[in-house]
């Protein structure tokens, strides 16, 4: 019996075979991937901004080097992901345009401000921690180029989380003011970090299809629960209190219960009304526009070299 292309595709996915760039795939699969991977790439690039804010104000040379290396990694991660997106037949310039015009989204977490040095710790521990939870699962995503980018990213990302925790742990051993800074920072970053996993499963209409195609491997709520379970004992070592009165270990479930997330805030930030949305996009657009002459100069130089080489080979 003849099978449709779609059936053959689904069978490959069910058998854990990876889909590669030139293989047949449903249009909706391609579109979902372009949206998801490019959103992920944009998040890496915009995610450089809240941390870039503190590079020149790091408290020591050691901290400055580590932060600089982390931000550089994020630029690299953006590149891996843009490259993976481009294998699906969309150009880099178009992807950048989509970010700058607001058509494409990036992770809402980066629309919150980084107010103190402790935020560099909390971002590494919580924001990168939540990202890793998601990215480890995505190493098994069905699209080959995306999975390979994820493997590379995960290898580099664990340093990010550890350097963040190291910042907080050092401060938690310090003065009363430093301890207060740690608590304040975690108070501000905890809930937005939980929102990073996206809406609850029953409010996430595209999740079922993405799970069937194995673009996603675990649901939003599963990942969020894993993150909470992993993070609570780490908070205890820091001697801080996570800002949720309902957070409590549930013996019968074998997991931590936690309070309701303020989804209204999530959708407000997503819609562009977060504390830093405008600032972040403006910074990206400015960097792109002010870098135009560098790109033009590099192109002009490359052309000149080409002409030189050609005339040499003729002579």
């Amino acid at each position: 019996m003849e099978h449709s292309l779609e059936e053959i595709f689904q069978k490959k996915v069910d058998n854990e075979e990876k889909i590669e760039a030139r293989d047949w795939m449903p249009d909706a699969y391609r579109k979902t991937l372009i949206r998801q991977i490019s959103q992920h790439a944009h998040s890496e690039i915009v995610g450089m901004l809240p941390e870039g804010n503190w590079i020149t104000r790091a408290p020591s040379l050691k901290r400055k080097l580590a932060l600089l290396a982390k931000v550089q990694d994020e630029g690299g991660h953006g590149l891996y992901l843009y490259s993976a997106t481009e294998t699906l037949g969309i150009g880099r310039d178009e992807l950048i345009d989509q970010l700058h015009s607001g058509k494409a989204k990036y992770s809402s977490i980066f629309n919150y401000p980084s107010l103190t040095w402790a935020d560099m710790g909390a971002i590494g521990w919580l924001v990168d921690g939540a990202a890793i939870m998601n990215q480890v699962a995505l190493c098994r995503t069905s699209y080959g180029p995306y999975a390979r980018a994820m493997v590379r990213i995960c290898k580099e990302e664990s340093f990010h989380q550890r350097q963040g925790y190291d910042i907080l742990y050092t401060m938690s051993q310090g003065s009363a003011e430093q301890k207060e800074m740690v608590q304040d920072s975690v108070n501000r970053w905890w809930w937005p970090s939980l929102m990073m996993f996206g809406p609850n499963d029953d409010a996430s209409p595209n999740s079922a299809q993405s799970l069937k195609w194995k673009i996603k491997r675990l649901s939003n709520d599963e990942l969020r629960q894993r993150f909470v379970d992993m993070t609570v004992p780490q908070a205890e070592i820091l001697g801080i209190k996570l800002p949720d009165p309902d957070l409590k270990y549930n013996e019968s479930r074998g997991h931590y219960d936690f309070g309701a997330i303020n989804w209204d805030e999530f959708y407000q930030v997503l819609a562009g009304n977060g504390p830093c949305n405008k600032e972040r996009l403006a910074a990206r657009i400015k960097a792109h526009e002010e870098g135009a002459w560098v790109r033009e100069a590099a192109s002009a130089y490359a052309e000149k070299q080409q002409i030189k080489n050609n005339s040499k080979s003729v002579a």
């Binding site: 590149l79 490259s83 481009e86 880099r92 980018a149 790109r295 590099a298 130089y301 490359a302 070299q305």
Partner: peptide
Amino acid sequence: HVGSLHAADAQM
């Protein structure tokens, strides 16, 4: 093979 990138020429 590890991935790809855009550049003005091979040296870059």
